[in-house]
Design a protein around this nucleic acid. Structure first.
Length: 148
RNA sequence: UCAGAGGAUCGGAUGGCCGCUGCCGGGCUCGCGCCCGGGGGAGGAAAGUCCGGGCUCCACGGAGACGCGGCGCCGGGUAACACCCGGCGGGGGCGACCCCCGGGACAGUGCCACAGAAAGCAAACCGCCGGUCUAUACGGCCGGCAAGGGUGAAAGGGUGCGGCAAGAGCGCACCGCGCGCCCGGCAACGGGAGCGGCACGGUAAACCCCGCCGGGAGCAAGAUCAAAAAGGAACGGCAGUCCCUCUCGCGGGGACAGACGGAGUUUCCGGGUCGCCGUUCGGGUAGUAUCGCACGAGGCGUCCGGCGACGGGCGUCCCAGAUGAAUGGCCAUCCCCGCUGCAGGCACCCCGGUGUGUGCGGUGUGGACAGAACCCGGCUUACAGAUCCUCUGACGCG
RNA sequence: GUCCCCAUCGUCUAGAGGCCUAGGACAUCAGCCUUUCACGCUGAAGACACGGGUUCGAUUCCCGUUGGGGACG
């Protein structure tokens, strides 16, 4: 559609067709999970965010409960934290949404499965260019030895 | 044209790629769920949580008292309000209009520091005047006065004239104040004529008095969900003490006492419960569970009534429902803004500078305040910019 | 989200309309004492969160703003 003179829109970065298989992403929602991940002290700090990681514990088997159908293979679980240090509600929401966006773009293909990850927002998360956040996340995974 | 006043509305737009959520339809599946398509998805303040309600629970209902809290010119609006509308009083502006305060200080109590003679009942420091002592003056004493000075936030009407020994509402005029009368107004209040002759300081966001209103807690309220004991609920039966009826018992009637119960305390009344037995129903905890949870004092349009807040009729629409908490992430173009380059226009003038606005470009970690959490009505606070309507003043032209 | 509470020197606090130029303790600084340090003594500096209102007068009473803290599944 270049007959209207407008330049072609730059396509969004799409995963390469020959990329590594994507893992399903689950969400961390319980306070105990966040505390457990933080207590491992496995973290990497960038100017855009802080990444924490810990191995996913085996699923809790409840007595008297039928064994839940375990999903085939390990999964990746991600949680997000944006405290009041980031700002008021509008700033916190925006920081969390940007972290969610870079996680859904990268983590499924680049992160080691079987781990829980926590991304902590900082004040810079809002203003930092998007491409920088992406490279920050790849670098942080590599430094933690969890990039595949 | 310039300067200003009041009111209302909006709060970037369009597109592309990738996502989230719940609704509808279809498909797959025993089921949990998954996939496809369609349409919906933050605000005027969603904020602060300062008022008023709906709703839910506190076992249920009625009438008071005390206490506590709030409100307070008048009339109206409303489900209600501390909100809104229209008036009243005071002040500001040439004007449109804006701002401020709002029961009671002769029901009582308290307080009014410092200064000052005196701070609430009248009094007299410096003074003024008369008399008297003394040779005169200064001064002392006696008496009259409260104008002037001084202190203070505030000093017992103010100004002027008369009057007087000096003065003073002592008299008069105007203003203020008080009292009742008349008139206008539903009322707050306003106006008028008259009388009084100053008697009545401030503070109630001090206690208080008067009038009106209010039970408490809050959706983390509250409710539901499979199996088992205690606990629990419903129904039925028996059941405290005394008196009367009765030979006794049953039955009937009456009185009394204790505990519980009105989620401030308390009184009274109606109507209840308590302990035991039987039958039936049945579960605290669960957990990323479900309901509450979105059709409402609802939005929009139009007509009628009203100065207005608002009310009524008709038509039409369904319009966010998350729960580590969705409503977005990235990119492009346009719009607006700032800075800047070039071109040329207008005004001023010290003749090459200043100001203003136009067109075409470039540039930007430029685009206000801010994110629903049960729901409404208000208030308060924050806010870049844009648009519309009405009105006022000045100047010019007709 | 809902409901409460608080704000005074660097820290902990007193004051409850005027007597406040806001008091005390610890901490800080200076001097004295001591050979020196500590202790002790003397002295100094240092605060009413902010903005309005009521009042003659506000740290105190009222309203709003801001900033802290707590309770509730």
């Amino acid at each position: 559609m270049s007959e209207d003179g407008r330049p072609e829109t730059v396509p969004a970065p799409t995963p390469q067709p020959d990329a590594k298989p994507r893992h399903d992403l689950q969400r961390l929602k319980r306070r105990a999970d966040f505390l457990r991940v933080a207590s491992r002290r496995t973290k990497w700090v960038t100017s855009g965010f802080i990444l924490q990681a810990a191995p996913t514990p085996p699923p809790r088997v409840r007595p008297g409960e039928p064994p839940s159908p375990e999903p085939a293979g390990p999964v990746i679980r991600i949680g997000f934290t944006t405290s009041k240090k980031v700002g008021k509600a509008v700033q916190r929401n925006r920081a969390r949404r940007r972290l969610r966006a870079i996680a859904s773009e990268i983590m499924g293909t680049d992160a080691q499965a079987g781990y829980d990850y926590v991304l902590i927002g900082r004040t810079e998360t809002i203003a930092r260019p998007y491409e920088m956040l992406l490279s920050d996340l790849r670098w942080a995974l590599k430094r933690l030895g969890l990039r595949r």
